[in-house]
């Protein structure tokens, strides 16, 4: 279980271009951070850097557990979920097959996947092939793994963009529950999150305390 994430003096470079430098950010248990900024400012890159998929140019990202700092690799493999632009669902498989795989891969069980299906209202989609689903339906299937295998840190990239109003509200409730149980959320968004959150604009002032 993660307690705090500390991002210190982080600087990211893509190709020849420096996205930002000197980013300091601390997220504690029960806190949500909404990353805003123009297109291409580096919101997605920051999420990928926290997930360890992208090597920072400078600075570091540390994960603290109850008993002090955790090894980054272990923390990432066990305590974070990332749902990005691409939902990672195979178009030829059924929604249930893919959800079950994603759940088991991230450490959940079939029962927890069933539970997530009920809470996200996915029953009617389960037998359909993923390619028959709309963008919003696919996103809901991808978001289901957040509930199916509980992990402390959610890294979300435009999580609500394809969702309709009703499901945005529903997902807002789920995010609030996650925070209430000590979870953390770092989300790249254009519209404000429907939960109390700290706003961080990427590419502007970079000194934010936790």
């Amino acid at each position: 279980m993660l307690r705090t994430i500390r991002i210190k003096d982080l600087s990211l470079v893509r190709g020849e271009r420096r996205l930002f430098s000197g980013l300091n950010l601390e997220i504690g248990a029960g806190e949500a951070v909404a990353l805003t900024g123009r297109n291409g400012a580096g919101k997605t890159s920051l999420l990928r850097a926290v997930a360890g998929l992208l090597r920072p140019d400078a600075g570091n990202i540390a994960f603290d557990g109850a008993a002090g700092e955790l090894e980054a690799e272990t923390a990432r493999a066990e305590a974070l979920h990332m749902v990005g632009h691409h939902d990672g669902l195979k178009s030829t498989r059924s929604a249930w097959e893919e959800l079950l795989f994603q759940t088991r891969w991230t450490g959940g069980s079939e029962a927890s996947a069933r539970d997530a299906v009920t809470r996200l209202d996915l029953e009617r989609l389960l037998d359909l092939e993923v390619r028959r689903l709309s963008a919003g339906q696919r996103r809901r299937v991808a978001l289901a793994r957040l509930l199916a295998s509980p992990r402390s840190l959610w890294l979300l990239d435009e999580p609500m963009a394809p969702l309709d109003a009703g499901h945005r509200e529903g997902f807002g409730t789920l995010m609030a529950e996650h925070l209430a149980s000590g979870g953390m959320i770092l989300a790249a968004v254009h519209d404000p999150l429907p939960i109390p959150s700290l706003n961080v604009e990427i590419g502007r002032s970079m000194e934010i305390g936790g």
Binding site: A51, R76, L80, M82, G84, H86, D87, G88, L89
Partner: peptide, 16 residues
Amino acid sequence: ERDFEDGALDLLALGP
């Protein structure tokens, strides 16, 4: 390539 394009490779890289 398929996993790379549809984002599943991210999930696999972050797995246990």
